[in-house]
Design a protein around this nucleic acid. Sequence first.
DNA 1: GTGAAAGCGCTAACAC
DNA 2: GTGTTAGCGCTTTCAC
Lengths: 344, 344
Amino acid sequence: MTKATIDDVAELAGVSIKTVSRVVNQEPNVRDSTREKVEKAIAKLNYRPNKAAQTLASLHSRLIVLVYDDPSAYEIPSAGYIIRMQEGALRACRTANYELLIHPCRYRSKDVAKELRTLIEQVRPDGIVLAAPLSNVPRIVNAIENTGTPLIRISPGKRNGKLSAVATNDRQISAEMTRYLASLGHEKIAFITGHPGHKAVGNRFLGYQDGLTQSGLEFSESLVVAGDNSIRSGEACAMELLEREDRPTAIFAANDDMAAGVMRVADRLGIKVPEELSVAGCDDIALAQQVYPALTTINQPLAAMVDEAVLRLIGWNRENKAVEDTTVVPGALKIRESTGPAPT
Amino acid sequence: MTKATIDDVAELAGVSIKTVSRVVNQEPNVRDSTREKVEKAIAKLNYRPNKAAQTLASLHSRLIVLVYDDPSAYEIPSAGYIIRMQEGALRACRTANYELLIHPCRYRSKDVAKELRTLIEQVRPDGIVLAAPLSNVPRIVNAIENTGTPLIRISPGKRNGKLSAVATNDRQISAEMTRYLASLGHEKIAFITGHPGHKAVGNRFLGYQDGLTQSGLEFSESLVVAGDNSIRSGEACAMELLEREDRPTAIFAANDDMAAGVMRVADRLGIKVPEELSVAGCDDIALAQQVYPALTTINQPLAAMVDEAVLRLIGWNRENKAVEDTTVVPGALKIRESTGPAPT
DNA sequence: GTGAAAGCGCTAACAC
DNA sequence: GTGTTAGCGCTTTCAC
């Protein structure tokens, strides 16, 4: 069976191709009876508009590109993040009949900007979602902006003039977690900071400090240890914190991997979680439910953020103008088994 | 800056658009000096061919679609599998300057076949990679075949006539793992079977039996317990196996998640791994390196398989004919810390 | 080796 | 409400 074209449909329905086009694109100004005739012909011929032709004629590709950092090896914990972003993007694309193109690229490479320009000019996507940390690199953001393609950034560090973005309330929710730990009676709450390049992770540290203040606890440098987001660094930080005489009764890590590292060390040292030590993480990756006991953490609504971003891009195309601001999708505390009352 | 078209390049280079087209597509029959002139003009104007126009005129989209099962919720352990497939597909696409479109779809849905047909007819991809378990559903495979789009299936259960596929040597490598365990002195090697719908997992059970035979051990029904691929089922199976008086000294699970469940239970029961119990898994997902002790497992070369599939698809387009057979990408044993000599 | 002309299948602008 | 006419930016055929 050779594919039907708009001409075939028009002929079968006894109308002009323009009318078929109107029906396909749900434009107004078509009599109901005509519309029905056309729809019948479309169904009969199993007609599907050719996307390339639509794109060429309309300058709209119905294609969204999701751009994110290509982890050097697709290792822990990138997979979870990436899949969740894709999930959100796919959800939005599906409802609007857009397709999703994925384009991981090397953060460090000098050619990223050029590579993205080439991609954009060749594919002409209707919108780009740029995930952190790429969304924090001015050179990359500008390169995309210059092509005129609608762009929305995910979880960017700072507001950047009038660029569109979708963020989450990292700082507030981290403060909430800290207050929660304080409310359990913990007074020595340690914090493991994350990779310094990642802004969202920095916000969590600020939230931790906010939370202490709000709970009437004093911030102490000695309770802060620097990790780099990896499980291994979580282990190293935990060793440093837990081998002290006056060890903390709660450890809040800037991500789940480091929190998992903490739990592993606690296990080795014979420190019971949560009876002797409460552990909290951030992100709510799959691992959080795999460790034992299950990890208390902050659910980062990545899927919802990207969903929102794509919906805005699609709206941007329809309205033909951007909503230039930052949308905030709130995270939520996930209280599981790794936190409990402070030991007496 | 408005985008340059082929006409702009032709004008600047002082040649016809056809010649520019020849240069862009690396066709023969262009004098070197002409080619240089054109290339200079392309560089000067920063010209990139418009993909939609190329597709419309040539019927080639330089687009590959990766179709896989959309897990009801993007949970453990799907993320790892999906990411690894994408990794392979992206690698191949990148080298050939193709783009990758991802299209997860609900396995159970009645409309999958129709949905895929619509996708194909709209997007006109140059090839489709269909992952298991979708690749085992005749209705879906046929629907794609009927569109005439090059299709390669990943890890299908049975050979299906002359359809192209890429598989791995599940059975042989599982036999190898079993022989390895036997070589460590284990005589009571238990097996936890996986989800019955997944063919590859069934092959592993056959491989286990092969391995026993090859090692001179007798197969015993009592050493086989049925899981469903989840961590939880691994725990349940482990309970059943390890609470016996005459418990096995090694457990080989048909996937890593179930093996992780086994290790969790062993930990709870105070059974030391690997001193008192050896545990082996399958797949080599990220979790395998996260658990303690690190899990001995079988590396399933998913990325390499999909890489191979996409390369074949691209070759298919170039040669304009399919290589209709099954390519086998071998897996490999990953000996880590969870296996050791049988207790005496 | 190179070029002119004719579409690919659709949408846009404007007529009717 | 509906149809006509021009393209969108390329590749293809075939002439030179």
